[in-house]
Design a protein around this nucleic acid. Structure first.
Lengths: 180, 180
DNA sequence: ACGTTATGCGGAGACCTCTCCGCTTACTTT
DNA sequence: AAAGTAAGCGGAGAGGTCTCCGCATAACGT
């Protein structure tokens, strides 16, 4: 059974985090807890890491992005779809400050299936489409790709945005046929 | 003029950090300062970030790695040299806990030229050799490559080491001619 | 040798992350 | 309605990062 106050607290935390992160991307966990009117303990029990919180706050966005895969695949070849999708993802991560780190699974603990799963699933769909039509090498691994995406995010946050060039490089590595 | 006590303090900090990091890779900055017999302020004045300190401590190692480039290039084709070099780098970063983050320039501030430069220089040498003999595409950027190396490091720290597969992918992206 | 000066010291302290645990309280059972 | 119970709360606090600034003192001119 889920206690009613627990449900309300969770909602209030998400609301507070949404506001606080919108105002200041680097709002502290303490500030968010205070704003939500709960203790730090409650915040951390609901969201063990800052990343888990950020991911929950932006879950709509994550869903939007992961959900756009079929549409992309319908309208263009797999490799192009993958490029667009990844660009979208990186763009969203940059806009929503703090989301980026959430997608580096190896860094700390394995992310919860809940939030890490959909992203991997989306990548898997895209890669599989390319493997099926022969444009993407069959040994491409979704986890590897996500990991590299983390580097893209970091690159996009820098002064000069290297990410398009880096993405092109990665995609060329995924190809079966050279396109150069 | 450099004050003598300043010079000594810097040396003592490096010594203490070397020992402390050898014993426990996640030794706190405070612990290191205490061990060196200086205040936290002095530690942070000499090494603004944990990464700067780690890089200074392992500078020999960094020099060894960056210095091995000519030898590698003499003994094998550029792409192979690049693979070996990068594997070495990732391996060293994994062994010496805490070095890895130091090589992600975009993450926080631009790294000091002193420490970031040699690594970029080494990569530049390797890429240039490949560009010259036509095996590496001419638009390959050393900064991009370093950034991707950061992802490799993170990948190597995880439970399963994806880094060789990821490196292969990146190198295939750098190629001018397909090799598959 | 002796002031003068400004370089560098280092600890107090602001603020952070994250944990632990005694108390509160929503739900269940009778 | 009353009592039982365990889920959940939240604050105290341990330990961390990093800054600021009054004070000590090394280097220099005389």
């Amino acid at each position: 059974m889920v206690r009613s106050d627990a449900r309300e607290n969770r909602a209030r935390i998400l609301q507070a985090a949404r506001e606080a992160l919108a105002e200041d991307g680097s709002a502290s966990m303490n500030q968010i807890a205070q704003r939500a009117g709960v203790g730090p303990g409650t915040l951390y029990r609901n969201f063990p890491t800052r990343e888990a919180l950020a991911l929950a706050v932006y879950q709509d966005e994550v869903e939007r992005i992961t959900g756009s895969v079929p549409e992309l695949l319908a309208g263009m070849p797999p490799l192009e779809a993958l490029r667009h999708w990844t660009t979208d993802l990186v763009e969203a991560m940059r806009r929503k400050h703090g989301l980026g780190d959430a997608l580096s699974p190896g860094a700390h603990q394995a992310m919860s299936e809940q939030s890490y799963g959909p992203v991997i699933a989306a990548i898997t769909q895209l890669l599989d489409a390319g493997k099926k039509d022969g444009s993407i090498r069959t040994d491409a691994d979704p986890g590897d790709f996500l990991q590299l995406t983390g580097a893209l995010w970091r690159a996009a946050s820098g002064p000069e945005d290297r990410s398009p060039r880096m993405l092109a490089l990665i995609l060329d590595g995924l190809r079966t046929q050279p396109q150069r």
